[in-house]
Amino acid sequence: MKLLPTDKIISILAKNKIPIPKTKLVNSKKELFNAAKITGYPLFIKVNSPDLAHKTDIGAVKKVEKEEQLLEAYNQVIKNTRKKMPKARVKGVILQEVKFGKEVIIGVKKDPQFNHVLLFGLGGIFVEIFKDVSLRIVPVNEKDAEEMIKEIKGYQILKGARDEKEVNIEELKKIIVNVSKLVTANKNISEIDLNPVIVNQKEAVAADFKIMVE
């Protein structure tokens, strides 16, 4: 199983109409500030490495509120990675626009018996602690996608508990169906992890993404 490089994943997602926040790959310090002009502030700076599965845990991700903090953050995430994961290949950093909303997870795993299985759940700690997820064997159509979203216990949270407004369920459905189409057309994909997908009233975007191939 091999993790695809970030630029490749970004182009696959774009081709398959799976939206992501404004994202720029940066190879050197020189490009840093120009790239940040495109993403705007606040932004996330993440180390770009095919060897890091969980970036947050080792300090390879930082939130940058304004321009003055950018260089410091850059040096910090690189340093942390070098220290904690000295063998990791570092291919610059990723700058990404910060999106606000609820976190969900959309993923795919290739099962030896049933082939691709698609997973949906509330993201963040909910997915880790409550394992509140729904699954379907691919292909998944729009109706299935809706059922998957409604099936999880946390659906009430997406619908807007108390005074909160309902998130854009339609956009979530679109991502689910497009992910299903993507793996149906690409049998060699062994795993997809869009975690988190940030969803608010207006839009749903995959803020972090991994695609593994056989």
């Binding site: 599965a53 992890d193 975690n195 593994m212």
Partner: peptide, 8 residues
């Protein structure tokens, strides 16, 4: 490595 892998 991935959450999906662990949960599915």
């Amino acid at each position: 490595s991935s959450h999906t892998g662990k949960l599915a």
